[in-house]
Amino acid sequence: MSAYICVVVLTVSALGGATVVSELLSRPTNVRLTSHNLNLVLRWDPPEGTASGLVYTAMYKSSVTDYRIGCENTSSLECDFTTLKISPYGNYTGRVRAQLGEESSNWAESNYVTLDTDTFIGSPTVSLSSNGATLEVSIQDPVFSISTLRNVYNGVTYNITYWKKGQNEKARSIPDIQQHRLVLSDLDPRTKYCVQVQINTDRNPNPSQHSSITCESTANEQEAPWVAAMVAFVIMAVVVALLVVAVVYWKSISQFLCPKDALPPHFEESLLARPNSNMYLNMQSPVEEICHPISIIAGDRTVEEGDPLEAAGSSFSQQPDVIVEER
C-alpha cells in the first residue's frame, strides 16, 4: 500500500514538473494617438520580450460613441482610423492589445486627440514669379485627409518671411496675410531672394510646418518694358514677312500644295473618240415604224329591263363577235 502511494506521489510530481504555466502577454507600450493634416493614426511599440507570430487588435472611440474595431489581427505597429467616418471636430482615443494564438494581453490605452485643435498642419507649397524688380508669392494650402483647411478653420493667415540669399539674419516678415497671393515690391533689382511661409489658424494653437525655402531672382526694373517691346516687335516682323511671302508666291505655293493632275494624251484620245459599236450606231439612226390600220364593227344590241347585273351579264353573253378587218 505504501509502495502504491509512493508511485502516485512520484507520478504527480513528474507531471507537475513538465507542465509550463504561461504568464499573461505583456501589453504594447508607448501607445499614442496622432493626427497630421486631420488624419487619425494609432501607433504603438511591441511589448517587451516579443515572441514571433504576435498580432494586434486596435480600436477607437469618440466622446459620443463606444469602441469600434479599426484593425484586427494585424502585424503592423500602427492602425489608421481616418477612413472610418471620423469628424474633423471629434474627440477621439484608442486602445490596442497583443495576441498570440488564443492568448491576449490587456488593453493599452492611448491619449485623447481633438482633431481640429490637436492635428499637426503640414507645410504649404510656395511658388515665386519675377516681374521686374518685384516677386509674386503664390501659396497653396496643404491637402487634408478629410475636408480642407479653409472649411475647417475660419481664420487662416500666413506668415511670410523673405530675405536676400545668404543673408538669413536680415530676414523680414509679413504676418497675418489672408490672401493666397502677395507681391513683394521693396526688393533690389537683379537680386536673388528666398521666401518661406507658415500657416496660423484661429483654433489650432500650433502653427503649421514651415514651407520649403524657395528662391527666385528679380530682374532689372528698367529692362522689363524694353524686353517686352522687343519681343513684340520681333513677333510682328515675323508675321508680316510670312504674309508678304504668301502673297508674292501664292501661285507657286498653291500649285505646290494643290497640283493639277493631267491625263496622258492617249487617254484623252480614247475618251474623246467616237464609239464604233453597232449598238451605238443603231441608237443614233432613226427607227422606222410599220403601222396597219384596223376597223372594229359591233352589231346592234338591246338591254332588257330587270336586274342590272343580269342585264350586264346577258349583254356580255349576247354580244356578237367582233370582226377585225385589216386594210
Rank of each mutant, 00 (worst) to 15 (best):
Q222D: 15
R181G: 12
G122C: 05
E136H: 14
P175K: 05
Y112M: 00
R172L: 13
H210L: 11
H180M: 06
D202S: 14
T191Q: 12
Q198A: 04
V195E: 02
Q99Y: 09
T161M: 14
E109C: 01
I174V: 14
Y153H: 15
A171G: 07
S127E: 07
I121V: 01
S173R: 05
A224D: 01
G166C: 12
S105K: 11
T218I: 06
L135R: 13
W163P: 08
C215F: 09
G166P: 07
S138E: 07
G122F: 04
N151M: 12
S147C: 02
A98R: 08
E169C: 00
T119P: 05
I139V: 14
V183L: 10
D188H: 00
T114E: 13
Q196K: 13
Q209F: 11
E169R: 06
T134M: 11
L182S: 09
A108T: 03
Q178W: 03
D118F: 12
S217M: 15
F120S: 07
V143S: 09
P225I: 05
K192N: 07
D118V: 06
N106E: 09
A219N: 14
P207C: 05
N206V: 08
R150K: 15
Q196T: 10
F144S: 06
T191N: 08
Q222N: 14
D188W: 03
L184C: 08
S211Q: 00
F144A: 04
I199R: 12
G132P: 03
H180W: 06
W107C: 03
T148C: 06
S104A: 12
S147R: 15
S145R: 10
V113A: 04
K165V: 03
V195Q: 08
T191F: 07
K165D: 09
V143Q: 07
